[in-house]
Design a protein around this nucleic acid. Sequence first.
DNA 1: TTGTACGCGTTATCAG
DNA 2: CTGATAACGCGTACAA
Lengths: 343, 343
Amino acid sequence: MIKHKKNITIYDIAKKANVSPTTVSRVLTGSPLVKESTRQLVRNIMDEVDFTPNEAARNLITKQTNTIGFILPDITNPFFSQVYIEVERKALELGFNILLRNSMGRSEVESQYLKEFTEKRVACIVFMGGRINKSNPSDQEVNEILEVMNKVPIIMVNGKMKGVNCYRIRTNEEMGIDLIIDHLIELGHKEIALIGGIKGITSTDCKTVAFKRAMKKYNLKFIQDWVIPTGFSIEDGKAAMKQLLQNKQLPTAILGINDLVIYGAIRECREQKIPTSTFSFTGFDDIFPSDIVHPSLTTINHNYDILTSEIVKVIQNLKDGKVGIKGKIIDTKLVIRESTRKV
Amino acid sequence: MIKHKKNITIYDIAKKANVSPTTVSRVLTGSPLVKESTRQLVRNIMDEVDFTPNEAARNLITKQTNTIGFILPDITNPFFSQVYIEVERKALELGFNILLRNSMGRSEVESQYLKEFTEKRVACIVFMGGRINKSNPSDQEVNEILEVMNKVPIIMVNGKMKGVNCYRIRTNEEMGIDLIIDHLIELGHKEIALIGGIKGITSTDCKTVAFKRAMKKYNLKFIQDWVIPTGFSIEDGKAAMKQLLQNKQLPTAILGINDLVIYGAIRECREQKIPTSTFSFTGFDDIFPSDIVHPSLTTINHNYDILTSEIVKVIQNLKDGKVGIKGKIIDTKLVIRESTRKV
DNA sequence: TTGTACGCGTTATCAG
DNA sequence: CTGATAACGCGTACAA
């Protein structure tokens, strides 16, 4: 790495200003215990020599940072970026900045970043996706979380771990599924499929359970061939739709584990020259493209503002040394667009 | 903030292991100058007492970080997140991690983050959007960049600043426009509009100039009322389309400053019950929704892999102390989908 | 209102 | 292969 000029320190400033390093430090921290004239003098010299304080030195002595570690699977997924950007905005107002790490859902990457965060002495960690969404995480995955929690508080968003008593904020996914089914029933649908997701991932398992329960509630028959857990991506949605279309009997409504799989499902219909109006489609997450695809997507919105506010509220409490409530469930809301219609 | 247990340092480890702190440090840095048995001993004790080295202390003494500061307007915009994630992945292989900051295109936010980056002693700064896209940045904006460059190298992506001799990687936007116009001409289009963007932003100015030049080349008339620079968002695209539709005479093809504005334009057509097949639409950027909207969008791809590789190549050179080439232009490529057809 | 002296936790230097 | 000692740059009791 290219070497830069000699580092300028508060000692250099102090010498030039004929004051002590302490005074310079006080100017830096904005202490009121400095005469206005000397403050100006010091400031001027700082500007003059282009002084930049060293954050590492400050962190070392103060033993804290204003950094929040944020682990999520993939920031290019609009669901995560929507949550991320809102948390960032709100945390900024509290004086925190965020360190983002993309785990790609891989456990060993998560481990690496958890280690990095503890070495950096972050104020707290916000965790989304990956291991905290596994219905059965490994002992090692759990223990690692517990060890980290010994040093830095963890906030799990839309996830949990058996035996791990950390802060948890989660959207009410069951409620979301109920809202969708109610809506479809109202439109006269009786034959409903569920595509996408992966068994063993809580968001999938949880939605599947809610789906079965809701179907039962309305006395509708649950057809195993219409539940196709292929994954969470657009491609996975395509694949699921392809598979679904091979059934002799077809549903009238298709429920996606998230918005992305429905984008894929709709595209698959187009490629097979099947009118998209053949089915009613519903997504989950209400990410931004759902408003611009055609047909625009009826889906479940996470109440992002409330969700992210609750995350930041925990951070605020942590900062203030308050304990606060450890678990919080956020209501979801149905957003009706063009993709659902009367049967 | 909640207080944790007393910090464990290499001194504590040293005492327990009956070795010197130096030896512990050597284990930490992976120095070969340690007997294997003592290395194991030290490692065991570290695990036992759950020791986590303090990065601030390390950064303070080594005077460097493996962090790359990354400023971009908004990570929720797929264009930026696509570039970001690729740079992150490639930089990771070089041992760098990335510190992301969203400027929202606001100059004062950029200033704040530039300051943060220099205080953090980041290895280099990757800069996208905001002031580096202004055709006429203020003196202050330029000077600030120059001052920062005195301390840390800056890589500008798709931007430049007069009188600022930093590393620059940019996509060949003119080429992109040429490719689009050639394609439209081939399809028989002669009446072409350009919507979106903002005057004074280089990406807009640059594309507009290329557009005019291409039109002239084919002896097509440039109609001022068909150039509608409303902005860069979906909403801005809607607004532009609304305005365009008020013209008595309409174009047969509509060229968007980016993909997002075309999403908006298409939606506006739908809302006004105008068949989307009335026009041929072209975008710019080839962000992921362009493949799933309907009609899917003919657009210009930035060659993201090459673009991001070039960014990381500069970082690599910086790390190795090489100088390398300061400017690099990346070819673009046309992606033909459903939104363009014969006139 | 200002200054002295020390500590934060690690790596670098040099000696053994 | 190991250790003693000195940095790194800043904040903070405590003293003046």
